[in-house]
């Protein structure tokens, strides 16, 4: 029986721009289970990024309930949401968003420093980089790495604190198919090895092919929720 990691119930999100109101989410319901490798797809404006922002505790819903790891996200203070992001969530961004003045190793260690981890930061960060075959790039800055390498470092940064949930917004958008494939295989391995849950917002068919579950949004609502049979997903070990 899968554990519910995230429970989204009747969530709406409105954006106001002057007199114009945009209803990005219109009573959306979604349950994310532990171990999901979930792709959220849909046309532009369907609400994918908005949903990710809400689940990632980066934004607050206009109405409805969001429960994450059993905590009511709507009742959390700004500080509590920051703490939740720091300790339990990992983010992978479309544009990598590594800190340009820090090396790959420092980018990964930085999350541990923010967490207040005192000892063993270097070893933990280096171990993750080596696991992702980035050991040789540890002392390179982002502008000395390719897009694929930077995205792998971004994944390393996202998972170094062992979050339960990793949210990735169009992680393959700036990568060629070879790098995209490698990145997705790597993420699947991390899920299998560490039991992490991955949620992607994507247009990329390759991500959908690797996903174990595909949720389609249209006009701020879930219009389909397809869970693949074991072994159907690309790159599946089964």
């Amino acid at each position: 029986m899968n554990t519910n990691l995230v429970d989204v119930k009747g969530v709406t999100k409105d954006f106001h721009n002057g007199k114009i109101t945009v209803n990005a989410l219109r009573g959306l319901d979604l349950v994310i289970h532990e171990g999901d490798f979930l792709a959220i797809v849909g046309p532009s404006g369907s609400g994918k990024t908005t949903l990710l922002n809400l689940i990632g505790a980066l934004d607050v819903a206009s109405s409805g309930d969001i429960s994450i790891f059993g905590h009511d996200l709507m009742a959390m203070s700004r500080k509590q949401r920051a703490e939740l992001r720091l300790t339990s969530l990992g983010f992978v961004f479309q544009a990598y968003n590594l800190i340009p003045v820090l090396t790959a190793l420092e980018n990964v260690k930085f999350v541990l420093e923010l967490q207040g981890v005192d000892g063993g930061r270097h070893e933990r960060a280096m171990s993750i980089l080596e696991d992702l075959s980035l050991g040789e790039l540890a002392n390179r800055r982002p502008n000395e790495m390719s897009g694929g390498q930077q995205q792998r470092v971004a994944v390393a940064r996202a998972i170094v604190a062992r979050p339960r949930l990793v949210l990735a917004d169009e992680p393959t958008a700036n990568l060629d198919s070879e790098n995209s494939e490698a990145l997705l295989v790597m993420m699947r391995e991390l899920r299998d090895k560490h039991g992490m849950t991955f949620v992607f917002s994507t247009h990329d068919p390759l991500v959908m092919a690797h996903a174990t579950r595909v949720v389609t949004l249209l006009d701020g609502r879930v219009v389909s929720d397809e869970t693949k049979n074991a072994g159907d997903a690309a790159g599946s070990a089964n």
Partner: peptide, 16 residues
């Protein structure tokens, strides 16, 4: 601005 948005997303607190 984007960098600070990323830092906040990563969980960096106001004091930091």
């Amino acid at each position: 601005k984007r960098e600070f948005a990323v830092l906040i997303a990563l969980g960096m607190k106001g004091g930091q």
